[in-house]
Amino acid sequence: MRRAADREAAPALALDPIACVGHGLCAELFPEGIVLDDWGFPIVLDEASDPALRDHARRAAKACPALALRLRARG
């Protein structure tokens, strides 16, 4: 398990930690790519950028009520 923030390249799924209100819906919808820290705030994993999981990532981004998750174009 690696965190997207550790990598040089921008992750495919980007979190805005200021907008996020931390109710964890995204981690429920997309547990392969997002886990919650000890205070209930999401950690975006490297796995969230896996092309095979792109539909899951898109669903999580769409479901976020705070518009805190954005799917980036790959590249």
Partner: peptide, 12 residues
């Protein structure tokens, strides 16, 4: 006071 992990994590 804007980001959950900063507020809660540093306090913890």
């Amino acid at each position: 006071g804007q980001c959950g992990s900063c507020v809660n994590g540093l306090a913890a």
